[in-house]
Design a protein around this nucleic acid. Structure first.
Lengths: 133, 133
DNA sequence: ATTTGACCTGGAGTGCACTCCAGGTCGTAG
DNA sequence: CTACGACCTGGAGTGCACTCCAGGTCAAAT
């Protein structure tokens, strides 16, 4: 199967401009072209784009993705380094999740405070703003 | 207790430049000044900075934080809207955590694949790259 | 035959969140 | 009394990740 850039954009969730941009910065290899010189994305192209969007979701900077992409071009000999990148990223994602979970607790605490303020306001009790509400 | 900008930076984890920047964009109220015209941060100032850094960790854009900061200046009447912002942010954090957890699984899957490739390489077995490894 | 719409290129522009800089002012230590 | 370090201001510069634009090509539809 092959796909126009519009179709590739739709399937990857990236914009057409972003697809061309990723190609320019060598994050993706130039796809095949049809007779009219238009980009013709293959299934493996799409699979790579999908994986890239996952890496992006993890917050990996483009620089690092480019590094990974470049290693990929060197075939199986680079597998070790590629794995190392993923392991490192795994670590940073785990840390980010922990960080977000801590923030979630703080938000919950604040939200609870606000709920209390609301109750007091309804009761016409004197209100005191939280330490930094 | 009151703190120099250097001390406030140290305690909040923000840079001195960022503290001044936050003040310029009205994310924090101008702190008191000492006799020499230097910023003199108070404990409530620090508490607000700490909370701001939490909001930032959740990925809240500065625009939104400014909105929250501005509501805060309007006192208790804005509590409802402030709570709404936090509730919305809570939601987006929860979604982000879910997203990251999904990514974690993909990373684990990939990492496992690489581990397999390594084993095959050690065994001198023929290797096949994963669909988009 | 022309119009339309999807695509092409190189390059400029955008928004965000800082970060840095030049030139100046204070208060204390030597 | 001067030298130093920490601080001040307004404004310019940075890095990231896109996003937009002008001007052009091409194949199919009217």
């Amino acid at each position: 199967m092959s796909y126009s850039i519009a179709e590739a954009a739709r399937r990857s969730g990236l914009s057409i401009d972003t697809l061309r941009y990723y190609e320019r910065i060598k994050l993706v290899d130039p796809p095949a072209r049809d007779t009219a010189g238009r980009r013709d994305y293959s299934d493996p192209d799409l699979a790579w784009l999908e994986f890239l969007t996952k890496l992006r979701l993890t917050g990996m900077p483009i620089k690092r993705m480019r590094e990974y992409a470049s290693l990929r071009r060197h075939g199986v000999v680079s597998a070790g380094r590629r794995k190392a990148i993923l392991v490192e990223q795994r670590q940073s994602v785990a840390e980010r999740i922990a960080e977000l979970q801590a923030c979630l607790e703080i938000l919950d605490y604040k939200i609870t405070n606000y709920a209390q303020v609301e109750r007091k306001v309804l009761d016409n009790e004197p209100t005191v703003e939280g330490i930094s509400a």
